[in-house]
Design a protein around this nucleic acid. Sequence first.
DNA 1: ACAATAAGTAATCGAGTGATAACCTGTCAA
DNA 2: TTGACAGGTTATCACTCGATTACTTATTGT
Lengths: 190, 190
Amino acid sequence: MSADERRELVLDAATRAFARGGYHGTSTDAVAKEAGVSQPYVVRIFGTKLDLFLEVLDRSVGRIRDAFETVIAERPFDPDSEEDAIRLGEAYNELMADRDLLQVMMHGFSAGQVPEIAAHSRACMAGIFAAVLETGWPEEVARDFVAHGMLINVMLSMHAPEHLGESASLDVLARCTFGEALEVPAPGAS
Amino acid sequence: MSADERRELVLDAATRAFARGGYHGTSTDAVAKEAGVSQPYVVRIFGTKLDLFLEVLDRSVGRIRDAFETVIAERPFDPDSEEDAIRLGEAYNELMADRDLLQVMMHGFSAGQVPEIAAHSRACMAGIFAAVLETGWPEEVARDFVAHGMLINVMLSMHAPEHLGESASLDVLARCTFGEALEVPAPGAS
DNA sequence: ACAATAAGTAATCGAGTGATAACCTGTCAA
DNA sequence: TTGACAGGTTATCACTCGATTACTTATTGT
């Protein structure tokens, strides 16, 4: 297999691994096992674990932003159209199907202890917010959209959809966070 | 010093340490150094690192919830009153002054990989949302309040307030996330 | 005086971690 | 053939981590 192919394959595996454990909670060996290669090879491809994580983070957030930009650029986005707003929200729901992207983003955003991760996180957040502003929405509406995304991320991280029925108030929050998307909670994955 | 006093002292130190690094990114030795005691003593007080983290998490989220409940119970909360809404928002702003509580909460919410942390996180989130529902607000309004809190958490984690001026769109997001509280960004702490 | 108990530390262990070095193996050009 | 290079692996190192054990010190009841 060519080095570039293998590289992409390892990046996909690393995305899955980091989505589960975050930066500190995931070893390079875990990534290697997920990719089916040896641990030193992972390190040699990317230099350091930090470099690998940053690449996974940028790639994941890039895809999320692309999903938004695609929806917004598809046809003229009407900031007053309820229908267009729903379309953008559904873009996020589709990303939930591959929740790894969202979880990697969230783990990046919470690993601000590492200065370089914090810097990339700021750039990623700036990019996403800029994309959302392209809707023409007022700042406060765009902010609420992003905030809702953050809530979805933490609710996924704590596995709320898989634990419905254990707490009345959390059920209420889950239902009005995920809406109809809750009915198909993507049972697989961790 | 009595064991109970020392225990509280270590819990405070652990809150600061975990707020910086999260569960996986913080060693028991880092907690011990922060508290000025030996590492084995930290372990012996709490049994395991996980037990310590769960106690720190529960305590931190408990204090956040208490802050909300105090505001809500202070006087009859009018769900239609803009003024009362501002009072509750300011309760969150005051918590930001001791941002450790918020950061611990966030790290707990993102460490869903560890089943016990995920379970405590769900209980914590359920408790906070239940407290916010006591305002009498519609579910959607309460949800947006919590979502806004999650956005504040990630913006703090990525040190957005300390890096104003580096990205136009992030500046906009920071200003409309923190509002006037941004002027005094609590320059100390990590 | 003297056990007994509480509060803590020093020493250490075994497992896991990121990274390095050395080695192996197939393919292809000369 | 041979040699060079790309694509990997095995072995290993230095270090960190959470946890255990054994020791020390000081107070207190008798």
